[in-house]
Design a binder for these strands. Sequence first.
DNA 1: TTGTACGCGTTATCAA
DNA 2: TTGATAACGCGTACAA
Lengths: 356, 356
Amino acid sequence: MFERPLNREATVADVARRAGVGKSTASRALGSYGSVSSEVRLRVLAAAEELGYRPNEVARSMNTGRSRTLGVIVSDIENPYFSVAMRGISDAANASRYNVILANTSENLEAEIHAVRVFLDKRVDAIIVAPSSAYQIEHLKAIRTSGRPLVLLDRKVPGLDAVSVEISIAPAAHEATSRLVELGHTRIAYISSLQTDGDSFAGFPLGISSVEDRLHGILDALEEAAIRPDPELIRFKVVTMERTAEVIEELFHLADPPTAILASDSTIARDILLALRERDVGIPANVSVIALDDFPWSPLTAPPLTVVSPPIYEAGFAAAVAAIEAIEERTAKPVALQARVIYRDSHGPAPTHSTR
Amino acid sequence: MFERPLNREATVADVARRAGVGKSTASRALGSYGSVSSEVRLRVLAAAEELGYRPNEVARSMNTGRSRTLGVIVSDIENPYFSVAMRGISDAANASRYNVILANTSENLEAEIHAVRVFLDKRVDAIIVAPSSAYQIEHLKAIRTSGRPLVLLDRKVPGLDAVSVEISIAPAAHEATSRLVELGHTRIAYISSLQTDGDSFAGFPLGISSVEDRLHGILDALEEAAIRPDPELIRFKVVTMERTAEVIEELFHLADPPTAILASDSTIARDILLALRERDVGIPANVSVIALDDFPWSPLTAPPLTVVSPPIYEAGFAAAVAAIEAIEERTAKPVALQARVIYRDSHGPAPTHSTR
DNA sequence: TTGTACGCGTTATCAA
DNA sequence: TTGATAACGCGTACAA
């Protein structure tokens, strides 16, 4: 069914022979560099056309040492966050005639280490990664040691020689939290899927910038309002739908349950909405819900979701642009983007005790 | 900032020298093929370890002619349909130690042709594609001519020597349509984003199997119920949000407007829901809506959406498995999967005239 | 302007 | 079991 072709592909040598010129002359004519008489050029081009010549990019990479390929490592391409970022990366890469090779890690460090190794072996020109850990970074350092640029998508890792494309969520998270406070909320929960492996501060994990960032925005807003953050209301490592339901259950059984819930990302937001619907909790009548992430369906949920919307397409695009700049110019500037709040109907005044 | 490394990577020759053996002996020891005395093997492995040797996959591809890479061509990775399929492809590829390289085409034939050329030049081992046209297939034929397997994702193209992974929507589309008929609907619209370039039959485009498939399911169900399909109600090439709003507008200004709308995919479904909300049309009180596609947020829309759910992760996985089989075994079996209907709350009885 | 010859890092061939 | 050598297809220094 899938036999190999009998006649192999035409090479530069074949084209040269047919055009009756030397190999390097053909090579120059095809690559349009150096100097070739226009008469010869036409003859070479014609010969190439006739033979259906196509350059072998593998051979080309072999002696240029460059592959015009960007390696992209994300936790899950299925997540709209990363698929949108990927589209941005892909569009930017395409515009500069680069290709994109993808690896999913499921937030698994071993998989990430493996992906880096494979990409390095394949001689990608640069690697774009949303790292799962800010502490185990030997493999990321290895990228730099190999002489290839490294671009950090969204998450910043201290002590690493890399370009980072950051999306600052803090100001928007601050704004959203303050809005909740204005509406009378004092018991505000934050549920995050983050599995961190680093230090923690007062029970809060630290180290991965995007998390610190979100948390700072929230905590600062609470502090301004003189509301003491309750560790009971801040939950990490909530990774499955089941765990989300459990956490929601626990939160509502607290002596003083939350009146608002902040979701760290769209998956958590979905699971929270599902769990609340299961329990028949009215939104926003009984609880306000705000997602610290956006996704295409956010205007259409019941009720339409108030979100902190990060410009991820732009971030992906910027990451690829930075990677290509670093490859070609040996330098690239870090990028900082800002999320913004989109107010819709999933938040409202804090319920009074009588309505609860 | 991003200087090239001073000391280049260790090669087989370096390892061989350090271990005090010949280049080919080292190569055999590292690749664990041929025969090497265990004493020498250990020495070579130790030397490789010390030098931090890593094989150069580009050089390897160069003379094996294989790259352990699958090229994947989709219209838009941002679309959950393709991002989920991509995850399936990626997981299956990963399990067999293959890599995945991605191209987006935005349903643009030129981009698809370009992507094929690039992938061929890069010597991918096989190409998985959801083709945008069933007629312009020279570039797809070129894949086969080059001796590489071609796997068609979701869409079947006649007259092409390729393995296809099909998702049959027809039975589920039939079932969903019949359900609508049972509920009293006789005016059922179908809105599709498909931009086809082929023949049409009674104004309906034909040729791309997944479309014929959906349409057949719907038309068969109508025929069984002795309802004559109205070409006015069947709309193709609805690709933008604006166009969707226009089409909705047009449909509702018909003398006999639809009481149910079938959406071809999740993007169209989103735009339809948005347009209906804009017009304040009650779902399902005034119109029933069913999507012929599923996506993670379908249970959480207002109202929860009745959908025809295609197993796309499985389709992606199967496509990659078939591609790898074709590469390694020279043959692969086509795969046929079935979508199923998930009944939720966006469909209901046809409104009586008095309520309209 | 043109052509020859070599290098890139690997695997494959083959004689020792 | 081993190692010298060729081959993959391209770019490119260098000489003509």
